[in-house]
Every structure is written in C-alpha cells, then in structure tokens.
Design a protein around this nucleic acid. Structure first.
Length: 283
DNA sequence: AGCGAGATTATCT
DNA sequence: GATAATCTCGCTC
C-alpha cells in the first residue's frame, strides 16, 4: 500500500522521544529536601486522620504560618486496608517537587483499590510477586509505579494488606498548572500541540503521571519520607459525596471486574470516567 | 459523546 | 510471542 497521503505520513514522524528529561533523577535528597513539616496527621473535619496519632508532640497545624505547608501525611495514614485507604485518599493533595523546586499539586478525586492475591484484577493476583510489582508488597505508603502499554505510567500507593494497593486515577490540579500544561502537551512536536483544558491535565492515571513528571524512577519510593513526592492533608470542608463504581480497564477479570472498588468525588469535573448508572443507584 | 484504530515496549509465559 | 490497571486522534452520529 504505497499510495497513502504523503502529508499524513510526514505528520506522524518524530512523535516519540520520552519526557524523561524533566523527570530528572531527583532521588530522595538527603538533607534540605527532607521537606516541610514533621509527621502531623491533619486533624480537620476530614478523614485524613486514620488511627489517632499518639506519636510525637501534639502541635496544631494552625500554629504553622499560613504560607507554610499543611501537614504532610505520614506512614500511619497509609496503614489502612485497601478500600478504606482508597476512600481516605479522596480529597488529599499529592505534591511533586521538581528539581528546580517548582511544586505541582493536585487534589485526589478518583482512586481504585486493588486488594491483593484474591483480587483477579490485581498484578498480585494468585500471590504473584515479581520484580515489577514488589512495591505492592512493601510497607503502606510505598509507591508502585509500573509501565503500561509500553509508554505510559500508573501510580499506586501500597496499602495495608499483602500485595494490596490503591491506584490514583485523577487529580484536580491546584498548583503549577502551567508546568503541567507543558509536561502534558504533545511536546514541541507536530502542530497538534493544542492547549489542554484544566480538566484534561490529570483526568486519567497516566495523564496525572505525565502532568507531575512521575516515571518509573519513583517506583518503591516512600511517600512518607521522599523529598520529591509526598501527600498533604486536603483543605478542610464538608465531606464530599463519594461514588463507588466498577474499576476501569479490567473487564477481563471475571467477577472481580464488577466489584465497586473505584471511588470518585461525585460531581467533580476532574474525574476520568463517570458512571451514571452507579450514581443513579447511589442517589 | 462515542467508537475504532494505532502507538509502543516492559514484562510475563 | 502475547499481553496490557492507557491515551490521542479522526470520524460519525
């Protein structure tokens, strides 16, 4: 089939080239990068607080200057069973600090729980443990980043339970939107680099990784201590309504594909896939 | 708004 | 050699 449109052929050329340049090797920086505040689980009306934190001095986050970072979520927050963590993560803020100190922030609005060996949709199904999915078996708060379809990344947080974790599927961008725009736009290549709407920046598991420059080098990092990525308690406010729906892209997993293990903030325009039927049932 | 196709490769069998 | 927790684009309705 030689006679295709010449214009079409040349358009696609040079579309590859990863965005790894921005995803520099900023591993856990030893000293300064130790990031803000100590472990101080947020104590707002939200559900940030898992078990009561009895460790360390009780200092209120309100004593920190407003310009300062609110409480960083510590290990105890992540130490919850999968479903509970998946729900508790909604509303929390994922923060990514780039090598140039730019901070990118997004409020989590959609998650999925993967429950471990019995979960036919999980990478750890049947107790499979490989070099790739090791992060799923590490302590709660450990990141599990894997490559999907040979070119995208998905970001998970290990939860309580062997081989269990929570997939982050969508964020509401809060800070560093210009940088996210740049990281997401079809980088410099062909003319197709249109501007994305805010709602298009992080509304998908691989889109949010692209927007926050998160790649395989983040696999197995600890959210509680890493210098380039962490979580903060979301802003206080009324508890948002949560929809429980079937997970996305796991239709092959039999009965486990149907289980309501995906959770998202009802009405949020930043969610990747809305399930009207589930919403109806949970009206 | 929704469908179909193509992209592209680490990981597992 | 087949698969995959996805995304983008182009076309149709």
């Amino acid at each position: 089939m030689p006679a295709r449109s010449g214009a079409q052929l040349s358009r696609r050329v040079g579309q590859k080239k990863q965005r790894l340049s921005e995803a520099e090797r900023s591993r856990s920086l030893p000293d300064v990068a130790r990031t803000p505040s100590p472990e101080e689980p947020c104590s707002g009306p939200h559900t940030c607080l898992g078990p009561p934190a009895t460790t360390g001095p009780q200092r209120s986050i309100y004593f920190l200057s407003p310009k300062d970072h609110p409480a960083r979520l510590g290990s105890e927050f992540f130490d919850q069973p999968g479903v509970r963590l998946a729900r508790a993560l909604l509303g929390q803020v994922l923060v990514r600090r780039l090598a140039d100190n730019t901070e990118l922030r997004g409020r989590i609005v959609e998650t999925e729980a993967y429950l471990g060996p019995e979960d036919e949709a999980a990478h750890s199904r049947g107790g499979r443990q490989t070099a790739r999915n090791r992060g799923m078996f590490m302590k709660p708060g450990t990141l599990y980043v894997f490559i999907i379809y040979g070119m995208y990344f998905c970001l998970n947080v290990s939860s309580q339970g062997d081989g269990a974790c929570v997939l982050l599927r969508a964020l509401e961008p809060l800070g560093g939107l210009e940088t996210m725009q740049r990281l997401r736009s079809t980088l410099g290549k062909g003319a197709s680099g249109r501007a994305l709407k805010d709602r298009e920046l992080c509304n998908g598991p691989s889109k949010l990784c692209q927007a926050l420059a998160i790649d395989k080098s983040f696999d197995q990092r600890d959210l509680a201590t890493d210098g380039a990525v962490w979580m903060e308690c979301g802003p206080p406010g009324p508890k948002p309504a949560v929809v429980a729906a079937a997970r996305v892209g796991v239709s092959r997993a039999g009965e486990w594909a149907q289980k309501p293990l995906r959770f998202y903030v009802r009405g949020s325009p930043f969610v990747s896939v809305v399930d009207r039927t589930a919403e109806q049932m949970q009206a």
